[in-house]
């Protein structure tokens, strides 16, 4: 589905990685593992077109990504290091104004809040939530709409054991519906996935 071919990326004069090639197929997971500063976030942003690539090709469904940018962006979901949550919004509002849905579907919002165990907090201000709860709120956004490809930066950071299990089960569940994941982490997780060690490409 998504194919990255010989990609190199530069951040203000320093090459962060080069000659990176991999492919993400439907319903499968790919894990980008690398130390701090190895360019995990840059890779995700590069695929999304938020930063420019130096060299190489990225294609989406056999077409160069430049040609199908809008189409590609509509069928993928991105969660960055910053979770794009507003402290002043309540939990429900944060989902309601999430970019990916135009006509907020209240049932979907409630069911996804239940799934991440935040239903009883729905009218609380997001600033009252703990870091782990915020992370789970961000995960609730994954469930609002099914996307073909999820690009997630560090899905397991600042989550406890229970949270990690929750994320794993959600990913597995979405996999069975044909959604693929491309995510980053600094250690290997126990999710069934293809692992790419980014440090090998510096």
């Amino acid at each position: 589905m998504l194919k990255v071919d010989n990609l190199s990326c530069q951040r203000s004069n320093d090459l962060v990685f080069k000659n990176l090639s991999f492919e993400v197929s439907k319903g499968a997971n790919t894990e980008i593992i690398g130390s701090n500063g190895s360019g995990k976030t840059s890779l995700l942003k590069c695929i999304l077109g938020l930063i420019e690539k130096n060299q190489g090709k990225i294609s989406w469904k056999q077409k160069p990504i430049e040609e199908t940018r809008t189409f590609f962006l509509k069928s993928c979901f991105y969660q960055g290091h910053q979770l794009a949550l507003k402290n002043n919004f309540t939990v429900v509002e944060n989902l309601r104004f999430s970019h990916s849905i135009f006509n907020s579907n209240e049932e979907k919002i409630i069911s996804s809040l239940k799934e991440v165990d935040l239903f009883e907090y729905r009218e609380r201000a997001s600033s009252d939530l703990s870091m782990g709860q915020l992370k789970r709120l961000a995960i609730a956004k994954w469930l609002l709409d099914e996307h073909e490809l999820y690009l997630i930066d560090e899905p397991f950071a600042s989550l406890d054991q229970e949270g990690t299990l929750l994320v794993s089960s959600i990913i597995k569940n979405l996999n069975s519906k044909g959604c693929s994941f491309l995510f980053t982490s600094h250690t290997s997780s126990n999710i069934d996935s293809r692992e790419i060690l980014l440090d090998n490409y510096s």
Binding site: F71, K74, Y78, G80, Q82, A84, K86, S98, H99, S100
Partner: peptide
Amino acid sequence: YRDGTLDQFLISG
């Protein structure tokens, strides 16, 4: 920009 919402806006297509 600081909380990542602008990223989401820009990649919304």
